[in-house]
């Protein structure tokens, strides 16, 4: 961004190449290299047979590329007694993911909304306490939570794991929405109040539609966190609902078994496909000018 990038009305819409735009694309290209290098290593490793990997030429292209490792990772890698690859956990992960993401965002955005725009007594204390717990390694809560849930008669189930994800997502979701709502023009909220809209009406009709980009961020955050969660799913989901990451871990993390790095890489990439699809698909929701549109209403 140089001073030459004068902000002419046309410049924002046209894609004319000038020195500033060359600089821009160079920046994007170089940063993209840094981001893509590990991915490149993973992909080429996944396409090499083990004998070639043992040679240790990390960046070399595969001499005889093969998708065997991908097939094995998806359909036949052993994850214990069952040798059906990581696919067996895929639908469990989806069943955990969808309700967990939806409910945690709903609860988090409502909480953030109540804390930001409504002067509720003790809101600061509640928010502060939530911020503090957001910093605690959540693994510490496992023992006591196992006790709490078995005391409540929930034990291990899909419902339990959804509640668990909602609980652990609450602080960050609240933070995200509280800060976002607080940064919106307060006039919107005041106007709605004057019109006599109630708490939930303002939330559903005005605030959430304006928060679309933030909802996208929340979806990205929660999808990734929940999809990649391993230890909570292991402890709370019950053995019929074990997520895909348990299989991934079983393939990748063996202590004394021989290691097949090509299968490890393929399994990791396969596991990441869903969050990647979410990121890619989130594109059209990142649109500009909602706030302006809403004001003009």
């Amino acid at each position: 961004m140089t001073a030459a990038a004068q902000f002419l009305p046309a410049a924002r819409r046209s894609k004319r190449m000038n020195p500033a735009r060359w600089g821009l694309y160079a920046f994007i290209f170089i940063t993209a290299l840094y981001f893509l290098l590990p991915l490149y290593v993973m992909v080429v490793t996944s396409l090499k047979p083990m004998a070639e990997i043992r040679q240790g030429n990390l960046l070399a292209l595969p001499m005889s590329p093969s998708v065997d490792a991908w097939v094995k990772a998806w359909t036949s890698a052993c994850t214990g007694l069952t040798c059906q690859g990581i696919r067996i956990g895929f639908f469990n992960s989806v069943r955990i993911l969808v309700p967990s993401v939806a409910i945690s965002i709903l609860v988090g955005s409502l909480t953030g909304y109540a804390l930001s725009l409504w002067r509720v007594r003790g809101a600061n204390i509640l928010f502060g306490a939530m911020m503090v717990v957001a910093f605690i390694p959540y693994q510490l809560f496992i023992y006591p939570l196992v006790r709490v849930f078995s005391f409540a008669g929930l034990g291990q189930s899909l419902l339990t794991i959804v509640i668990i994800h909602t609980i652990f997502g609450l602080p960050t979701m609240t933070l995200l929405f509280r800060n976002y709502f607080a940064s919106l023009p307060v006039e919107l909220f005041k106007a709605a109040r004057v019109d006599g809209a109630g708490f939930y009406q303002i939330y559903a009709r005005i605030m959430m539609p304006m928060a679309t980009p933030m909802v996208v961020v929340a979806v990205i955050l929660q999808t990734t966190g929940i999809w990649n969660d391993f230890i909570l799913g292991l402890v709370f989901a019950g053995r019929d609902n074990l997520p895909m990451t348990v299989q991934l871990n079983n393939i990748v993390n063996s202590t004394q078994g021989e290691r097949a790095y090509n299968v490890d890489m393929a399994a990791t990439l396969l596991t990441a496909l869903l969050p990647l699809a979410v990121y890619f698909g989130s594109g059209r929701w990142f649109v500009r000018g909602i706030a302006a549109g809403a004001v003009k209403g």
């Binding site: 894609k15 981001f35 590990p38 990205i220 890489m265 990791t268 990441a272 890619f280």
Partner: peptide, 26 residues
């Protein structure tokens, strides 16, 4: 307003989607 915005954004975001169990090794 860059070209292929979705792709570029996904390139920057993808590392976030992968668990460190394997990317740490890489």
């Amino acid at each position: 307003r860059v070209r292929a915005e979705d792709t570029i954004r996904s390139i920057y975001l993808y590392p976030y989607s992968m668990s460190f169990i394997v990317t740490g090794l890489v």
